[in-house]
Design a protein around this nucleic acid. Structure first.
Length: 594
RNA sequence: GGGGCCGUAGUUAAGUUGGUUAUAACGCCGGCCUGUCACGCCGGAGGGCGCGGGUUCGAGUCCCGUCGGCCCCGCCA
């Protein structure tokens, strides 16, 4: 039954057979997508990477070939020789690219059969994700995923083209590297040759790329896997890919300019869209004030308003007490949401609570009155103030969050997104970029009782804020910048500290002792003393970028072999236990925990 | 560490206040069919409801536990 391909070689991809081939003999190799057996005529859709084409087995052409075609089933792999013909008038299929032609089969070889697949290989067939992940090789046969991975390839090519042209040199950095104390949890790799010691997989090539700048490469880039052992999300995998780059003798605008050029080139060549440059910029505090989040979705309005000044002395104690304690009150006018039911509002409140809100105050704007549990506490003056700021009209819904600034903003920022989703305010198919700049350098970690870097400890403070490091460290801004696309952070970078004295000072302020700093980062601190040029860079999340371009819900749909939320590969069943012998060689003993 | 949703033929789903033999569509198998393309028509096979307990005369339906998938909070310099 089976044949080898022998001397047969593909002459054209199934999806590329066109009217140009009419009358010519072609050789195709592919998978059987579907069989339509009319008893007489048999039609088979043959699929390969580029698409499908209809094969015709006609008993009048060859009784033998037609006879043999009866045993063909879905996902069998066959090679076909036949003549391309224009389809008879009226039988064209405009829904496929090859729909004007068909291949009259003269001869075919069955290269392999297939079990019945656990699910049908078709985009419109919805299958649960665990099944898709277990049979990833079948899932990847579907055109949607093939398209995504081909898009990903085109984006990668565009990156290499553009950055090479701009003088960036692609240099590989080690995967077996050193654990760093700050940041995410490391994946560790035991060293057999050095029992009891471990490499860490890189969370990013950060230090290596800085050292490449010290080494004088001037411009570096890499499309590189990074590893972080943290919990997964729709947009987070334990291993993910960064477009990593670093430049010497630059300031912030130079890096941002290169990234804008890079994204322009990516969208131009891989997507066919001309972006408008430059991208708008927001400072971090502006983003927080107007959108409540440091990754604002600027595709729609519905901006947050600060009403702290209006309700400072309010009889509604939740407002006035919060403000008295240093908090703020933010409000949003959800246009046209006045019809939200009590249940809707309760659900919204529950949602708000997941982000730390204690509650969510609301006012329904009716033609004659403001309907709300808090309306009776609001003075006429407060109502006037709110009216001026929020411009409420009958049918609107006003929502408030009162809390410390960060919580109040976050809560209402999330509510803003929820409302926009519900009101269908988010334009489909668009790409809105925005830079977020002027991040604080440090934040205070209550849990650990120390300062932490907002970006990373190598980020340079703003020159004009350096002296505030000693007096009011939380007010020091950094030379960090994030690039946000459609409300998702797709990259972040900064100008780095290029002086060892400042770097040591920052480590001290982060509560990292000189001893620890030298143990963990000693090689960097030493390198910084040997003529380090000013430098900075950025890393873009390739998975996220491609996912957004592809319109994918999750980055799993743009990664060939992704892991589940428990970081398991359902296809290969990694991670798994290993032989005691392997552990012995590594001087590792597994402790069972109850 | 926590919250929510989900798990029923190969697949996707339905399954009433617990009550005869667990439904449907697609897929699969067989037959018929020379212009279909989500081909059509006829016929057929296929599951005991993720797993383990419990309540009950009786459990996909209720309870407890457990495993797995997804979304989210924390976490992700």
């Amino acid at each position: 039954m089976f044949s080898n391909i022998g001397e047969w070689r593909r002459s054209v991809y199934c999806g590329e057979v066109s009217t140009d081939h009419i009358g010519r003999e072609v050789t195709l190799m592919g998978w059987i997508q579907r069989r339509r057996d009319h008893g007489g005529l048999i039609f088979i859709d043959l699929r390969d990477r580029e698409g499908i084409v209809q094969l015709v087995f006609n008993p009048e052409r060859s009784k033998d070939v037609h006879e043999r075609a009866h045993c063909l089933r879905n996902e069998y792999v066959i090679a076909v020789k036949g003549t391309v013909a224009k389809r008879p008038e009226g039988t064209e299929n405009p829904s496929i690219r090859t729909g004007d032609v068909e291949v009259i089969v003269k001869e075919f070889r069955i290269l392999n059969d297939s079990l019945q697949t656990p699910f049908v290989i078709e985009d419109r067939v919805e299958v649960t994700e665990n099944l898709r992940l277990k049979y990833r090789y079948l899932d990847l046969r579907r055109t949607a995923l093939q398209k995504n991975l081909i898009l990903r390839h085109r984006v990668s090519m565009a990156v290499r083209e553009f950055l090479s042209r701009e003088g960036f040199i692609e240099i590989e950095t080690p995967f077996l590297t050193k654990s760093t104390p700050e940041g995410a949890r490391d994946f560790l790799v035991p060293s057999r040759l050095n029992p009891g010691t471990f490499y860490a997989l890189p969370q990013s090539p950060q230090i290596f790329k800085q050292i490449l700048m010290i080494a004088g490469f001037d411009r570096y880039f890499q499309i590189v896997k990074c590893f972080r052992d943290e919990d997964l999300r729709a947009d987070r995998q334990p291993e993910f890919t960064q477009i990593d780059l670093e430049m010497s003798f630059v300031e912030r605008d130079d890096v941002m300019g290169i990234v804008e050029g890079l994204l322009y080139h990516i969208f131009r060549t891989a997507v066919g869209i001309d972006l408008t440059l430059p991208f708008p910029r927001l400072t971090h505090s502006e983003a927080m004030e107007r959108y409540g989040l440091d990754a604002p979705d600027t595709r729609f309005g519905l901006e947050l308003r600060d009403v702290t000044g209006i309700v400072r002395g309010s009889a509604f104690k939740v407002f006035s007490d919060t403000i008295a304690k240093g908090g703020i009150v933010k409000a949003i006018n959800a246009k046209g949401c006045g019809g939200f039911s009590r249940k809707d509002l309760d659900e919204l409140t529950e949602y708000a609570k997941t982000f730390g809100a204690k509650g969510l105050a609301w006012i329904r704007i009716l033609p004659e009155e403001w309907q709300s549990p808090i309306a009776k506490f609001l003075s006429d003056e407060e109502k006037r103030g709110l009216t001026e700021v929020l411009k409420p009209e009958p049918g609107d819904l006003i929502l408030f969050s009162a809390d410390d600034a960060k919580t109040a903003n976050t809560v209402l920022g999330r509510i803003r997104l929820k409302i926009a989703e519900r009101l269908d305010l988010i334009p489909k198919g668009g790409f809105e970029f925005v830079w977020v700049t002027d991040f604080p350098l440090l934040e205070y970690d209550e849990g650990e009782g120390r300062f932490k870097s907002v970006h990373h400890p190598f980020t340079s403070p703003m020159d004009e804020d350096v002296e505030k490091l000693a007096t009011s460290p939380l007010e020091v801004r950094s030379k960090a910048y994030d690039i946000v696309l459609n409300g998702e952070e797709i990259g972040g970078g900064s100008i780095r500290i290029h002086r060892s004295d400042i770097q040591e000072d920052i480590f001290r302020r982060l509560g990292i002792s000189d001893e620890e700093a030298s143990r963990r980062f000693g090689f960097l601190l030493e390198a910084l003393r040997y003529g380090t040029p000013p430098h900075g860079g950025i890393a873009l999340g390739l998975d996220r970028l491609v996912a957004i371009i592809a319109g994918a819900e999750s980055i799993r749909d743009v990664i060939a072999f992704p892991k589940t939320q428990k970081a398991v590969c359902l296809m290969s069943d990694a991670p798994s236990a290993v032989d005691t012998k392997q552990l012995d060689e590594l001087s590792i003993k597994v402790i069972k925990r109850t």
